[in-house]
Nucleic acid binder design. Structure first.
Lengths: 227, 227
DNA sequence: TTAATACTTGACTGCAATTCATATTTTGAA
DNA sequence: TTCAAAATATGAATTGCAGTCAAGTATTAA
């Protein structure tokens, strides 16, 4: 029954993998529903159907566990974005689409809205998870003469944080979603485009993301009020 | 003995003012030394020489108290910066100096380094405390034709968050202080300058800040290790 | 002087992260 | 198959802190 790929998995390995995945999935679901602060480790282990202490065999702290869940979901999003940007011709549009989609998701997807409240965690996670893609795209666009910046790392770091600030402001109704286009324009300027070109790119039609591989419940709407 | 200015202060009012100030000062000192998370309300009230419960007569929560302390110190810094930028001729240089000085302070002043770790608090505080100055400066420079952006509010929000991200990275040795010049260049581009002009402005000599009005102990150096 | 009001206080409560002694499962050697 | 050593799982107990509140003290104004 064991398909030919990979080394055979021992009982123990299989259990470890199951528990780890169950914990991450449970963490993701609970945090999506209640927010990070209102989520207890007990909630998570309950849902993952493991003992409380087990969480600490896999993760060093509550934050570590939740971070793992966040990173996994960011990886998924990054890959979905890439399937779209792979079809683009203008390298300047790739970064523009990515940043816009990230902010759209952060402000629209109920599961992300809670995360925004712990922005120091999120900003760093965005920097790391999307970084490889983003920096590659930045460099490509620079080679093509569309962008002009010195350090991709610094530029991406600034962009990541500024996206979090912008998204948080939209979540808190201090900015409207209409402002996101201009936010992208500013980011493109940060990366060294001139303003006219930036507006042009930021306004191009944005193809929709491919549907997410269904895993948790309703992705959109308002989160529940805090505890 | 009561100098002619203002209405006479009752005993009660005087005590309230004293307690409030003592709490803010104590909060500031302890947080500077230990960081926000390792600081307990007990530490603060101990140092301020008031009962634990008293803190809650003045502030609704630990975070609220610490936020007040942070805001006060930001107000001081904003005013010190202004005494320098008041002497500038080029309006584009005002924002450049302010952002650079803010990042320099955040990465150099021991008292700020801890704060960086709760960046969602800091970023918002920066946005609010420096906002009036920053937006005014942005608008002036735009009128003078030096900058080109659409919404000062959005631009400042993005700049504030990106400064926090950059400063945090420097504090964590992921960026060097040398990178701050380029960070300012990128911010000026965000505000709509062209890259060449931005480099030129960011490289101008920066006059030192006036000395801080002495209040707490040694402002520079490395913070203590966490708890 | 005094009673009403406003403020202060620190012992106490509640809650949640984390630990750790014990129980259970897995493994590999016999 | 059997068994003991090693690896993991478990949840009751520990810990530590934010925030509450009943009782005490200071202030006010009549």
């Amino acid at each position: 029954m064991n398909s030919a790929s990979g080394p055979p998995e021992t009982r123990s390995e299989r259990r470890r993998r199951r528990n780890r995945e169950a914990l991450i999935q449970a963490a993701y679901e609970i945090v999506s529903r209640k927010g990070i602060d209102a989520t207890t480790v007990h909630d998570i282990t309950e849902r993952a159907d493991v003992g409380l202490g087990t969480a600490y065999n896999y993760f060093s702290s509550k934050d570590d566990l939740i971070l793992a869940a966040i990173e996994q979901s960011m990886d998924h999003l990054a890959r979905r974005i890439e399937t779209v940007t792979d079809t683009f011709d203008d390298p300047a549009q790739v970064f523009a689409y990515g940043t816009r989609t990230l902010m759209d998701t952060a402000t629209t997807d109920r599961r992300w809205q809670w995360l925004m409240q712990r922005s120091e965690v999120i900003a760093d996670a965005i920097y790391r998870c999307f970084g490889p893609y983003a920096m590659r795209d930045l460099l490509k666009a620079r080679e093509a003469g569309r962008y002009r910046f010195d350090s991709a790392e610094l530029t991406w770091r600034q962009a990541a944080w500024s996206m979090v600030g912008t998204s948080l402001a939209v979540c808190e109704n201090k900015l409207s979603t209409d402002d996101l286009t201009e936010a992208v324009v500013n980011l493109l300027c940060l990366a060294g485009m001139d303003r006219a070109g930036a507006w042009q790119v930021a306004r191009r039609p944005r193809p929709p993301l491919p549907a997410a591989p269904a895993s948790a419940s309703s992705p959109t709407g308002r989160p529940e009020p805090a505890r």
